[in-house]
């Protein structure tokens, strides 16, 4: 199938982009790796695409004591190849290398992934676990949001139609931080059917576990509880209204158990 007609604007600045997004049916696009298929299948039918991929403000990387601000248009391949400062000791690179395929990673961006808010995508779950936040620009100026506040549900964010994510801030992990990330996919590069990310960073008071790929907003919990209570996962899924199918539960439990196992192999005192 071929895409339905749309118009195209490449704004010169973030301000222009926001102004362009004010028109009815306008839709921002960055790497376009999720939007492109939907355009071709005529499922997405924007009146106009506003291209953010080349905005220099969205390409900047700024390091501070507390962490690193990554421009929203930084690609997965750039993370994979670790060409920018990394506050996570390699976590970002490792995660990026598992997103889809290299040809997709060359164009897909971190900001686009967050704005798309696919519950089975890697970045939302991982950045939730890392305690990241985003900077958002809109007609009313700049605001900052945690990823937790940004993501409301599957494919649903708190972004207004004329707001864009300009950067993602990833806080610096302490040297004692421990990490585990497990996802289960039927095929390499395909969508995950279950995923779990765990960050334990005692120096920063963090002990976070995130369950993703559950076709609703990710579940965020406390790692200590997850480790000490064998029924934690089941209860958390049930509380989220996802307790129906035993076979699906079994997969989530297995993924969470493996993540906890990997974390303990890392020597963490959860």
């Amino acid at each position: 199938m071929k895409a339905a007609r749309f118009d195209y604007i490449r704004p010169a600045s973030v301000g222009d982009a926001i102004a362009s997004l004010g028109s009815t049916g306008a839709k921002p696009v960055s790497g376009g790796q999720s939007l492109g298929p939907m355009l071709n299948l005529r499922l997405a039918r924007p009146s106009v695409l506003v291209d953010l991929a080349r905005l220099s403000d969205l390409r900047a990387v700024r390091e501070s004591d507390g962490g690193v601000h990554f421009g929203a248009a930084i690609t997965h391949a750039e993370f994979e190849d670790a060409i920018h400062p990394d506050p996570t000791n390699g976590i970002l690179s490792k995660v990026a290398s598992g997103i889809a395929y290299r040809a997709v990673r060359n164009r897909g961006t971190i900001g686009g992934s967050l704005a798309h808010a696919d519950p089975a995508a890697d970045w939302p779950t991982v950045l939730l676990a890392l305690g990241a936040s985003v900077e958002i620009m809109g007609p009313r100026g700049k605001r900052t949001s945690t990823i937790d506040d940004l993501i409301r549900g599957a494919f649903e964010t708190s972004l207004d139609a004329d707001e864009i994510i300009t950067s993602v801030f990833v806080p610096r992990l302490s040297s004692g931080a421990r990490w585990a990330y497990v996802k289960s996919c039927r095929k390499v590069g395909e969508f995950a059917e279950s995923m779990c990310a765990i960050l334990v960073d005692p120096a920063n008071g963090v002990s976070r576990i995130v369950i993703g790929a559950i076709e609703r907003k990710q579940i965020i919990g406390n790692t200590r509880e997850a480790v000490s209570d064998p029924d934690w996962a089941i209860n958390a899924l049930a509380a989220a209204g996802l307790g129906d199918d035993p076979a699906t539960n079994r997969l989530h439990r297995a993924t969470i158990a493996r993540a906890i196992h990997d974390l303990q192999l890392e020597g963490a005192d959860a």
């Binding site: 999720s34 997103i99 897909g108 696919d118 599957a154 494919f155």
Partner: peptide
């Protein structure tokens, strides 16, 4: 209904 399909189609990629 659409949603899980999207999850399948686009869960691989993003951005």
């Amino acid at each position: 209904l659409i949603k899980s399909w999207i999850a399948r189609l686009f869960g691989r990629s993003s951005g």
